[in-house]
Amino acid sequence: MTAQILYAFITIIVGVGGCFGYFYGSNWLLDRVLPADASNDASAVRNLKLQAMIRPWLFLGPALLLLTVYLIYPVIETIWLSFHGKAGEDFVGLSNYVWAFSDAQFRQSIFNNLMWLLVVPAACTFFGLIIAVLTDRIWWGNLARSLIFLPLAISFVGASVIWKFVYDYRGEGQEQIGILNAIITYFGGDPQVWISLPFWNNFFLMVILIWIQTGFAAVILGAALRGIPEDTLEAATIDGAGPFKIFYRIMVPQIMGTIIVVWTTITVLVLKVFDIVLTMTNGQWNTQVLANLMFDWMFRGGGDFGRGAAIAIVIMIAVLPIMIWNIRQANAEQGGH
């Protein structure tokens, strides 16, 4: 263990030192090879021009290299693999996709993912908005927001343990130590095994993600709400609009852009949801989702990379519209610069 700490420590120094070394070294080299204070003016000007051309790529180099190896190349490779067999050698055409859409588990995952997509972003945005509006009006609002925000720092696995404890089930007649069943039995109901309850168990898993992400929505939307000009709200009040009318007619339309950003951010997160399902049910009791199914196929029976890749592509296709929208949005901003 001490060896490991030492190893980690040395790597930090080597890694960070390496980074510094690269940037210092490459820039020094550039200044050396193409000196800006060259003997005659013509070559000095030329050198400066060349420097200005090369230097950005020195700055960008490591980032572009890492992005290519860890994201761009894998995306292309995954597309290629999805048309190939188990080990990625023989070309099988569309048969991985044909398999997927005839596979009961895959269809179950698609159905579940759609439910997650409908419920979680909507619930997070809705609760986030309400919490943002309410906490904005009280003196201890900051504290309240921090507490609701807090689950965002907790890992999905940790959150799963927390909620598994909430959903804990003991046989009838025994004392329930899970708070949900304790409340149910207190009011005379029968305890339930929540995480294997057909259909509804999906919602009990969604609650975990909603619990985690609502704070995110509340903080972002809260900041947007504070950006609404005071005059607008005052004018509406003078015109006799009630609090609900102000909320729906003025606040919500004013921050629509931010609501969309929050909604899409959580949508992307939902498509990738994996840890919660893995730790709570591992896809049993009809709770499978695409990300967990994909992980399953990566390793199940030695792994089937073709099918795993095909499932990954399906997730990617679902993200694609959001990606395109983001890029257009970013380009529009660029144009405005």
Partner: peptide
């Protein structure tokens, strides 16, 4: 800094922001 393809590189980075990690796992493994 002045460099060619700046807009394109930024667009690619914005695009990569939402690429699901799942896409990278098998090739990197």
């Amino acid at each position: 800094m002045k460099l060619p393809f700046r807009g394109l590189i930024i667009a690619i980075i914005v695009g990569l922001l939402v690429v699901p990690l799942q896409m990278s796992l098998i090739p990197l493994l």
